[in-house]
Lab assay of single mutants.
Amino acid sequence: TFELKGKVGKVVKIAEDHYLVEVEGDKWIAYSDEKLSLGDRVMVVDVDGLKLKAKRIP
């Protein structure tokens, strides 16, 4: 999973306390310091076990 750092994905679902992000065809649980919206493009900035930390990108 460490190779996911720096990869770009898309928010495909918003849950109460996390997001579901699709990166290279796989879906991952993600969290972010900022509020994300459905369809936002994100970059993986860190990997915490099986969770990704994501940041919105333009």
Rank of each mutant, 00 (worst) to 15 (best):
A54P: 01
D33N: 08
K13F: 12
E24V: 07
V21M: 11
S37D: 12
H18G: 13
F2V: 15
K35Q: 11
D48Q: 12
G6E: 03
D26G: 14
E24W: 04
D48L: 09
K55M: 09
W28S: 01
K7L: 05
K5D: 15
W28I: 02
K27V: 09
D26C: 14
G9I: 11
G25A: 06
D40Y: 05
V42N: 00
V21P: 00
H18V: 11
K53Q: 04
V42H: 00
K5E: 15
G49E: 07
G9R: 00
W28L: 02
L36H: 02
A54Q: 00
D33M: 09
D48P: 01
K7F: 02
L4R: 02
K13W: 13
E16S: 12
H18P: 00
P58N: 10
G25Q: 08
D46H: 04
R56V: 05
K5N: 14
A54Y: 02
E3K: 03
D48W: 10
V44I: 15
S32N: 04
S32R: 03
V44P: 01
V44W: 03
A54K: 01
E3P: 15
V23Y: 02
K55I: 06
V23C: 05
K5V: 15
V42S: 01
L36S: 01
E3M: 02
A15S: 12
V23P: 00
F2R: 15
Y31N: 11
K55W: 03
I29R: 11
K35T: 11
V45W: 03
V11G: 00
V8D: 10
D33Y: 09
K51W: 07
L4F: 03
F2M: 15
V8H: 11
V8R: 06
L36T: 01
V23K: 01
K35P: 10
G49I: 04
R41I: 11
I29L: 13
E3I: 03
L4D: 15
L38F: 12
K55Y: 03
K55C: 09
D17H: 10
A30T: 12
P58H: 12
V42Q: 00
T1Y: 15
E34H: 08
L36D: 00
S37F: 14
I29F: 14
D40N: 07
K55P: 01
G6F: 03
S37Y: 14
P58A: 12
T1A: 15
A30M: 15
L50C: 13
T1Q: 15
K53D: 03
A30S: 11
V45N: 03
L50W: 15
D40Q: 04
G39C: 11
I57S: 05
V42W: 01
K55A: 14
K35N: 10
A30W: 01
D46F: 03
K51D: 03
L52S: 01
V44Q: 01
F2E: 15
H18E: 14
L36A: 02
I14A: 12
E24Y: 05
M43K: 06
A15C: 10
R41N: 13
V23D: 02
W28M: 02
V44F: 15
G6W: 03
K35S: 09
Y19Q: 02
D17Q: 11
A15Y: 13
K35M: 10
V42I: 15
G25L: 06
I57N: 04
K10W: 13
K5F: 15
I29G: 08
V21D: 00
K7M: 05
G49Q: 06
K51Y: 05
V21W: 00
K53C: 04
K5C: 15
R56L: 10
D48A: 06
H18C: 10
E3L: 04
E16F: 13
K7S: 06
K5P: 14
E16V: 12
L38H: 07
I14R: 07
D33T: 08
R41K: 11
K5H: 13
M43G: 04
D40K: 02
L20Y: 11
E3D: 06
V42L: 04
I57E: 08
D46Y: 03
V8L: 10
A15D: 12
E3T: 02
L38V: 11
L50R: 09
K27C: 08
H18Y: 12
G39T: 07
G49L: 05
H18L: 14
F2Y: 06
S37L: 13
Y19C: 06
E16K: 12
A54H: 01
G9N: 00
D33P: 07
V23N: 02
G39D: 13
K10C: 13
V12C: 08
D48H: 07
D46T: 03
S37C: 12
I14E: 11
V11D: 00
K13L: 10
Y19L: 05
V12N: 04
G49C: 05
K51I: 13
S32P: 02
H18W: 10
Y31K: 08
I57V: 11
V44S: 01
V45S: 04
V21S: 00
A54C: 15
A54M: 15
V42M: 07
Y19E: 01
F2W: 08
G49Y: 05
L50Q: 09
E16M: 13
G6I: 01
K27Y: 08
I29T: 10
W28H: 06
E22Y: 08
K53S: 04
V47L: 04
K51H: 06
V12H: 05
R56W: 07
V12F: 10
W28P: 00
E16D: 13
D48E: 12
A15K: 13
G39S: 10
R56F: 06
G25S: 07
P58V: 10
Y31L: 14
K27M: 08
K10A: 13
L38I: 10
E16H: 12
V11Q: 00
V44K: 00
D48N: 08
K7G: 03
M43W: 03
G49A: 06
K10D: 11
L50Y: 14
V8G: 05
K10G: 07
E3W: 12
L38K: 08
I14F: 08
A54G: 04
K13Y: 12
G25W: 06
G49S: 04
K7V: 03
K13A: 11
L38A: 08
L20V: 09
T1N: 15
E22V: 13
V21F: 02
A15T: 14
V23R: 01
D26W: 15
T1R: 15
G6V: 01
L36C: 10
